[in-house]
Simulated scan of single mutants.
Amino acid sequence: MRNVTRPFGRTLAAMITPFTPSGELDVHGAAELARYLVDEQGLDGLVLNGTTGESPTTTDAEKAQLVETVVDAVGDRAHIIAGASTYDTRHSVRLAQEAEKAGAQALLLVTPYYSRPPQEGIEAHFSAISGAVELPCMLYDIPPRSSVPITESSYLRLAENPRIIAVKDATADLSASQRIRVATGLTYYCGVDALNLAAYATGQVGVVSVIAHLVGKEINAMFDAFDEGDVERASAINDALLPAMRALQGPAQGVTAVKAALAQRGLPGGEPRLPLPAASTVIADFIAENLASIKEV
């Protein structure tokens, strides 16, 4: 059993990967965006090279360069976690080792997707990656994308691994997550923005959020209110963030929506790489209208 802590802070963003107009990695934009998220949105950490970071369409070299860039920009004042897991365990081991060399402070390991491995394979996958580095690891449980969830029995065995210390929980099953968290002592971070406050209230210590790109300060204010015992204010802030949910997790895929929203604020992002499309004018207007309607609480 481990004590419940906040090993990676409380409010983290699943950061997008900025691209130039020609579609290349925008290292200057990545540094600028990282500073904005940490210094202006008040985030404790950044998760790079995840799904929101378009990991399926970035090269291994780009992934390492992004980590180096962001570590140089904000690594002295924020936790930098690198996604380093695919459906190929050997490739994932190489990604993990390169992320460690690039300066990542921790790794995000997603359940192998597409091939639908059994639990034995999932456990072996995570064990192989975590055993190849000296970094703490956060498991990413997201059945809507990976198709296969991590079972409670697997969590119990994986929790015995000293490098596996946390979970990004995108199962949307708060009851099961609470049960597993208590049984294993693993630290839980919410990975479903619609459940941020509810998850926090049931013992998850923070979030790895997409909407934090635009409303990180508001999420922090919500958690501060809850920590201070002002549940009514925390709930009011949560309600006020509904337009952000509609804007960034509505008709457009999350990466497309966030990049459009950042562009509207003059921040780096660029267009997504195909097969993800850029936001249409109709979608961009929808995003702008909803974000503009967020009321201060």
Rank of each mutant, 00 (worst) to 15 (best):
M1K: 10
R2E: 03
R6L: 14
F8E: 04
I16V: 15
T20S: 02
T20G: 09
S22T: 03
G23D: 02
E24D: 15
E32W: 00
L37R: 02
L37Y: 12
E40G: 10
G42C: 07
G42S: 01
G45V: 04
L48D: 12
N49G: 09
N49K: 01
G50K: 05
T52C: 08
G53K: 01
E54D: 01
S55Q: 01
S55P: 07
T57W: 06
T58F: 12
T58C: 09
L66R: 11
V67H: 09
V67N: 07
E68S: 15
E68Q: 15
V71I: 11
D72P: 11
D72F: 13
A73F: 06
A82G: 08
D88E: 11
D88Y: 12
V93Q: 05
V93P: 02
V93W: 05
L95Q: 12
L95W: 00
A96D: 07
A96C: 06
E100L: 14
E100D: 13
K101E: 15
A104S: 04
A106Y: 05
L107P: 07
V110T: 14
Y113H: 08
Y113W: 14
S115I: 15
P118K: 15
P118L: 13
Q119A: 02
E120C: 01
G121I: 04
G121K: 03
A124Q: 15
H125D: 08
S127V: 02
P136I: 08
C137I: 09
M138T: 09
P144E: 01
R145H: 11
S147A: 14
P149F: 00
T151K: 03
T151L: 04
S154Y: 05
R157M: 14
L158M: 05
I164F: 10
I164Y: 10
I164W: 08
T171N: 06
A172P: 07
D173A: 00
A176T: 12
A176R: 14
S177L: 07
Q178F: 11
G185Q: 01
Y189V: 04
C190S: 04
G191E: 09
V192P: 03
D193V: 00
D193S: 07
A194L: 10
A194S: 11
A194W: 05
T202G: 02
G203H: 01
Q204I: 07
G206S: 07
S209N: 09
V210I: 12
I211D: 08
I211M: 13
L214T: 12
V215D: 10
K217R: 15
K217T: 13
E218I: 03
I219A: 11
I219W: 00
M222Y: 03
A225K: 00
D227S: 11
E228R: 13
G229R: 09
D230R: 02
N238S: 13
N238T: 10
N238Q: 14
D239L: 12
A240H: 07
L241D: 05
L241W: 04
L242W: 13
A244H: 01
A247C: 01
A247N: 06
Q249S: 13
P251D: 08
Q253K: 05
V255I: 02
V255L: 06
V258C: 03
V258D: 06
K259E: 06
Q264I: 03
R265F: 11
R265L: 15
L267C: 06
L267Y: 10
G269D: 02
E271D: 11
P272Y: 08
L276E: 09
A279I: 02
S280D: 07
F286S: 02
I287F: 01
N290R: 08
V297W: 06
